[in-house]
Design a protein around this nucleic acid. Structure first.
Lengths: 335, 335
DNA sequence: GCCAATCATGTAATCGATTTCATAAGCTGC
DNA sequence: GCAGCTTATGAAATCGATTACATGATTGGC
């Protein structure tokens, strides 16, 4: 491929001048600038970002590590991150942790080697030494969706407590008393927060949280299905199941359908995370929607802010909201 | 951040030796190697891939440009591409064309600047000058899911013709005669192929393809909804609608539901692309499943083969298969 | 006891850009 | 007619790695 040197030769100028043209430096004669542009297109010149980054120590790239590419929540998040980054002239390099701490760390390492200017992480595990080291080195990192307590890293996440309270009230109003939670893992902040909010909401509504009704999963389809099976096998199964994320809900639907049970006549279902197709299930599913677009945008602004100013950023918590559909309707009304 | 020079100083050796250790060169004394490793971890040294790539002119990175991140088909594809690339020690940088040729070209350019070793493209438009130039320069490019005719670029895609023939037969057997197609855009190879296969299948079953029943969309939700509305507003609306991809199906469901119609009693529905949630809709949707995992894996093998051997690769076509569910069942049987 | 081979390591050029500093040319004003 | 200024350009150092080549030490064969 053509190098800046070739362009310079072709245009009859020095590499310095070509570089000035590339960087829109005003002190280049119009006629010269034109000659350089001509030379560039004649040679199909594509500037080498690798060389440029080596010299400038900036890559105009931010790394994004998400929990799971197959989870539409993260996909939407990635999309908004990308859009916003692009608007600011940054490229996003995405890594899929697949909910595994080792794979997350693999990507952190790779992205560091590639010298991304900043890092957006949806942290997968409690802490890993690598992430801790990053935080302590004060590098431009922002946590997204999830936090790790004890680390001084700004984060952007959503708060589902109010929506969960509303959901539990809705369930009680619809006549449900025995409500189960297929929660996320206690190792993730989102798992813990949703579980705590659920317990608080149940207490507020004067409902009992039976220990056997609260079961931790891993935010993936398989655990949703397993937990649903366990719950339905209980001597006294719950009347409603609240799932900790959309993939666990998917697993739950699978199991409920396999057993030939009906929603909400036999079990009511609600989900944390709202995804497009919840409108089209039989019946449409009541869910808690997170402001994903807003979260992604904000996170990008924070890292870029840190990259450019070097100053620490604040954490942000955006409210989630309940979307009531028909999967929790009063028992008996559907038949 | 620590550089190789710092590690060398700390370990009391030259940078050449540190570089040898980094690259597992066997001609380094065991004791020296240990000292270098100690120095690296003492300094939290992370090798600079930017500098390395500049010198070696290889980035061990492949670029992937997909049609739309919000489309689960592409998401699954991306996932398998990523997995396979990682297995081969490559990093994937993904760009979202958002079904727009200009945005696709933006990413092609960015990825070229970043000097990716190879490029996997799900081409969005018929041809753009940039893509043509790439192909002619003989760079390691592989088209995925879609092709561009006239360019000598190997591709990996799936062939839905047999599955579409099977689908049309199934529809006829279920008593449907007036079958409509909400197709993809004629600018995409997948759009054209599916439309042609549909026409052929209809002919084979002795069914008439009414011109007003074949309407091109853009593989996105909105066009699926619009086309469905247009079809249902026809004086004689179709008995069944076959959608060109999963997002258009989503839009169609939206419209059908908004009108309070029932599937398949009022309209039967089938989709190209199978996605997880089609099992859970009311009713579950008959769809044509593409071998996404296989496609992604194969495409990665092809580019990497081209990168390493420099030889041209062959194109591959993998068969799609029909998954019959209940959205096309015999008219009247559902009531 | 010396030459050749082997092993371990170092020196310095190099990749392709950016950027500092120097300089040549052309003006202006007195 | 020249000091002083502006404008346009070039020469060369630099970023952090890799690697060809050189070198010094050790060993073994005869």
């Amino acid at each position: 491929m053509a190098r800046i040197k070739d362009v310079a030769a072709q245009a009859g100028v020095s590499v310095a001048t070509v570089s000035r043209v590339l960087n829109d430096n005003p002190s280049v004669n119009e006629e010269t600038r034109r000659r350089v542009y001509d030379a560039m297109s004649a040679l199909n010149y594509v500037p080498n970002a690798v060389a440029r980054s080596l010299r400038t120590t900036a890559t105009r790239t931010i790394g994004l590590i998400i929990g799971d590419v197959l989870n539409p929540f993260f996909t939407e998040l990635a999309r908004s991150v990308e859009d916003e980054a692009r608007r600011e002239g940054f490229t996003v390099v995405m890594g899929n942790a697949d909910e595994r701490a080792d794979q997350q760390d693999h990507y952190v390492r790779t992205l560091l080697e590639q010298r991304v200017d900043g890092l957006l992480i949806c942290p997968t595990a409690e802490v890993t030494p690598l992430v801790q080291q990053l935080a302590e080195a004060g590098r431009p990192v922002v946590f997204l969706d999830r936090t790790i307590s004890g680390l001084d890293v700004p984060s952007v996440r959503s708060d589902g407590a109010a929506a969960i309270a509303e959901l539990v009230r809705h369930l009680r109003e619809q006549g449900h008393r025995r409500i189960a939670l297929a929660s996320g893992p206690a190792t993730l902040s989102t798992g813990r927060e949703r579980t705590a909010a659920f317990a608080a909401a149940m207490a507020a509504e004067g409902l009992e949280v039976r220990p056997e009704y609260v079961r931790p999963g891993d935010f993936r389809e398989g655990s949703g299905r397993r937990i649903t099976a366990e719950l339905l096998d209980l001597p006294e199964p719950p009347e409603a199941i609240f799932f900790g994320d959309n993939l666990m809900t998917l697993g739950g639907l699978e199991e409920i359908q396999a057993r030939g049970l009906r929603i909400p006549a036999d079990v009511a279902v609600a989900s944390f995370d709202d995804v497009t197709w919840f409108k089209h299930t039989a019946p449409p599913i009541t869910a808690i929607a997170q402001p994903t677009a807003e979260m992604g945008r904000l996170a990008v602004r924070l890292v870029i802010g840190r990259i450019q100013s070097g100053q620490a950023a604040d954490s942000h918590v955006l409210p989630a909201r309940l979307v009531i559909r028909r999967s929790c309707e009063r028992k008996g009304i559907m038949e």
